[in-house]
């Protein structure tokens, strides 16, 4: 575990600087003391709570643009050139829409996104929950870049002993994954009670610096047979299993050189994600490929 302060140059990726990033769960803020956080290497102070929230840069007290959505506080260090991601499921009234509990992880946020896309680790890291031996095979699935320039993985299937907080026995879970922004990934997953509907989890990853991130999950689950405490319990149970694995990944930044790591067929979504990051010239949190 490193204790030294990492000094890195600030982010130069305009795609990231001019986009919105979650910086806090609104429920974590209070008006008594400022909440300190960091975004893309820039230290921020969040003052106030409720309707009276503002963010300033710690170095020069300069203001930072803010917005509130989905129970989170969002910040943009530059000039936003697009809106916060629209999530239709977050407006469906038969779902719980809850923040899942923000957790800091000592690894590049790009690694956290990639791990979220990966089914191969289920039996080994989420043993007895999202997978179990000997059901280790990842059946082949489809990956594409959509018209909206998202990485979309469909027809993903995996045997899961406890697929969700409402599960009562193992099921073949159907998944779809979507990467909409470099640090934003989501999954759709079969609801065990209503097999024709999908639960939805978004992971908004805050790039703290190149080797640290905060995962902010948003849960949009069908309300039947569950409650908010149970949804948060399951999300945190699963994510806290990933945390030590992520923190032991080396290098801590995501290598984008296709020759850096050897993928197998099950890693198709990761291969697409890394290629898509290269295409968008994302360097922050990455080890870039030689030109």
């Amino acid at each position: 575990m490193e204790t030294a302060v990492i000094e890195r140059s600030a982010c130069a990726d305009s795609v990231l600087l001019n986009d919105w990033h979650v910086v806090a769960d609104l429920s974590a803020l209070n008006s008594e003391r400022p909440f300190e956080t960091r975004l893309l290497g820039t230290d921020l102070l969040i003052h106030g709570a409720g309707d009276r929230v503002r963010i300033e840069r710690k170095c020069d007290s300069g203001p930072v643009q803010i917005s509130k959505k989905y129970g989170f506080l969002w910040a943009c260090l530059g000039d936003p050139d697009r809106d916060i991601l629209h999530i239709p499921e977050a407006f469906e009234t038969d779902r719980f829409i809850v923040t899942g509990g923000s957790i800091a992880v000592g690894v590049s946020g790009l690694r956290a996104v990639e791990n979220f896309l990966d089914m191969g680790h289920f039996p080994f890291v989420h043993t007895g929950w999202l997978g179990e031996e000997p059901h280790t095979e990842v059946p082949s699935y489809k990956v594409e870049i959509t018209d909206q320039d998202e990485v979309l993985a469909t027809q993903c299937r995996f045997f899961q002993p406890v697929a969700s907080p409402t599960a009562s026995g193992g099921i073949m879970a159907n998944y779809e994954y979507k990467v909409s922004r470099p640090y934003t990934v989501a999954l759709y997953k079969t609801n065990p009670v209503h097999p024709d509907r999908m639960d939805y989890i978004a992971l908004f990853v805050q790039p703290v610096d190149e080797e640290h991130c905060i995962a902010h999950p948003l849960l949009c689950y069908l309300k039947d047979n569950t409650n908010e405490a149970e949804l948060r319990w399951f999300m945190q149970l699963i994510f806290a299993q990933d945390k030590p694995i992520l923190e032991n990944q080396l290098p801590k930044r995501l290598p984008l050189d296709p020759r850096a790591e050897t993928p197998i067929r099950a890693d198709a979504s990761s291969v697409f994600y890394r290629r898509w990051l290269r295409h968008h010239n994302i360097t922050y949190g990455a080890i870039t490929a030689p030109q």
Partner: peptide, 10 residues
């Protein structure tokens, strides 16, 4: 009985 300790501070 799961208690929403975080972030719900239950």
């Amino acid at each position: 009985v799961p208690v929403d300790f975080y972030p719900g501070r239950e």
